[in-house]
Design a protein around this nucleic acid. Structure first.
Lengths: 340, 340
DNA sequence: CTGAAAGCGCTAACAT
DNA sequence: ATGTTAGCGCTTTCAG
């Protein structure tokens, strides 16, 4: 494994020049630069990141803290972040932050602190005040994806708005009996999405002058089986069957559609369903949905932290950037058969 | 940000002792150890990983190369790997290796080489001989998940066997007209899974004395929509409808079931379907499947590389470890209505 | 534009 | 059991 010294002597220059030529910092005549580059190439030389980090204090590493990996929304964020990071010459260090206390402590007190990352991207972080403080105390650029968080620049769609938009779409079609299947309010792994989506739903109902019945909100697990179970439960009893359901996520909506089909109901004739995310399966199921682009959110988060790194003093434009969430109408929503 | 020196003077010892006390290498009296630990704690001291890497040559970093993130199998591997790594005090550096040539080159020639990782875990790597050579040339422990690969210790289920097992299950139920929906043979992103699963299917047919019809293999995309499309195509024509389908992955199988349902067929009365993976949705769909545990595969891969790191000279027991793949029978398979 | 030299913060001999 | 010392491989003043 050859070092900078070898390159230097092969190119007939000093270590300093090699460093300058290869890193692009400082003046080097273009001829020496090519000579150095060739020498490095022929020796298969690559800088030792530890050595250069030690002196520069920079690691070209960004830590990503994420609560889930195996879910479309989260996977897409990782993809977006990875792509953007690689593109700019940074490496991605992944931390899957589960609910386990011990694990969280380890991540916060040990891993993130060891001067191994230049910046942190926190995805839908359910964070305690102490954890937030620790994060801030790192003195490193941080970006959060998911919802406003005190002291940390964040980005994401407006969940209240998105939920309202979805509900309004159903209202506009003439539905009055709309249920909401969302996430368990006690089990939020993030910036209170569940509460917010419920809130948007309620706002829309209220604006339309519809009285909210406590039984109209059914919490469930945020995946297809969760939606399926909720769907079976809701649609099982024909007497209290709504004409439309707003599901807080496409996975849940798809589960509901599957349950409806099994019960012999047709969508949207007997039941309209709308979701949020525009999950890849939404198209197959003809699911009307509110689109959000997690991969783009990931890229933007990368932009933010890297810009802060490379342009000292720069700060994200806002405390929290609200990203667009657009309605995509497919066949799962339609006018109610009978208006009540 | 305090350095080792600060801790040393606060604890009234030398830098060396601090280093020993904190890293656990070398003799330190338990009293000084506590004194040092407390001093470090009170100063919020954490070692600079670049500095220690520079001298030790070890980074406590493992690189993971993976072609896809947003798919259950791959996501589960990442989860397993991450958990195991964190557990042992290592960080995970994630590289999403897509088909883009430029990106691949960057990963291989730049990222992996910079002395940033102690070991590499390569997941279902579609690798060129040059890339394999580069990987080996790193001189670092490597483990591959997915299938045998020359010169690299690998682990995974036996795809041929798994496919045969699945097909045999259908044969045992009495099916004679079994189609296989698998992945496109030209689009293998890995250790030739598609070919292998096709092979196992053919072997089972042959052993049962069933002549293989070219039209019995339908390639498609490895996801639910892919299975759905294939299902629609296969089941659309009642005359050439098989009594059973072996899908090379659960996602594909689920797509087929959805297509069957839409066409008014019941599973398994009109059509038996079997998949591979035991995807979380398999249960909901009553899908009979061959289980494999990607998260455990990830953990095992971590074991292998870390053991090599910490126990010089140790090597994985075999070139390729075949992991168990077990049949899980659910309602999607049954006897054919009519034996042909 | 290039070279010489002084560290970056830590660990690993080697002493003691 | 602890201290002293010499680097690890690079970048960055500072001269020239």
């Amino acid at each position: 494994m050859s070092g900078i010294e070898d390159v230097a002597s092969l190119a007939g220059v000093s270590k300093a020049t090699v460093s300058r030529a290869l890193s692009g910092r400082g003046y080097v005549s273009s001829e020496t630069r090519t000579r150095v580059t060739e020498a490095a190439q022929s020796l298969g030389y690559v800088v030792s990141s530890s050595a250069s980090s030690l002196v520069t204090g920079r690691t070209s590493n960004v830590g990503v803290i994420i609560p889930v990996i195996n879910q479309w929304f989260f996977g897409s964020i990782i993809e977006g972040v990875e792509r953007a990071l690689l593109d700019r010459g940074y490496d991605l260090m992944l931390y899957n932050l589960t609910k386990s206390h011990a694990e969280r402590t380890r991540v916060f007190e040990y891993f993130l602190v060891r001067k191994r990352v230049d910046a942190v991207i926190a995805v839908t972080l359910e964070i305690t005040p102490e954890e937030a403080e620790q994060l801030l105390a790192l003195g490193k650029p941080i970006a959060g994806i998911g919802g406003p968080l005190a002291g940390i620049p964040t980005l994401g769609i407006d969940d209240v708005e998105a939920a309202r938009l979805a509900t309004e779409h159903l209202l506009l079609l003439g539905h009055r009996d709309i249920m909401h299947v969302g996430g368990d309010l006690d089990e939020q792994m993030d910036f209170h999405v569940h509460t917010k989506r419920l809130k948007g739903y309620l706002q829309a109902l209220e604006a339309a002058g519809i009285r909210y019945d406590e039984k109209s909100f059914v919490p469930t697990h945020f995946d297809i089986p969760g939606g399926y179970r909720a769907g079976k439960q809701i649609l099982g009893d024909p007497r209290r069957r709504p004409t439309a359901i707003f599901a807080a996520a496409d996975e849940v909506a798809i589960g509901i559609i599957l349950a409806a089909r099994e019960l012999g109901l047709s969508v949207p004739e007997d039941l309209s369903v709308i979701g949020i995310d525009n999950h890849p399966l939404a198209e197959m199921f003809g699911l009307t949905s509110i689109e959000q682009r997690p991969d783009e959110q990931g890229e933007l988060a990368v932009d933010w932290v890297i810009r802060q790194l490379e342009e000292p003093g720069w700060m994200p434009p806002t405390e929290h950037a609200y990203l667009p969430a657009t309605l995509i109408i497919r066949s799962s929503t339609g006018r109610p058969r009978r208006t009540s």
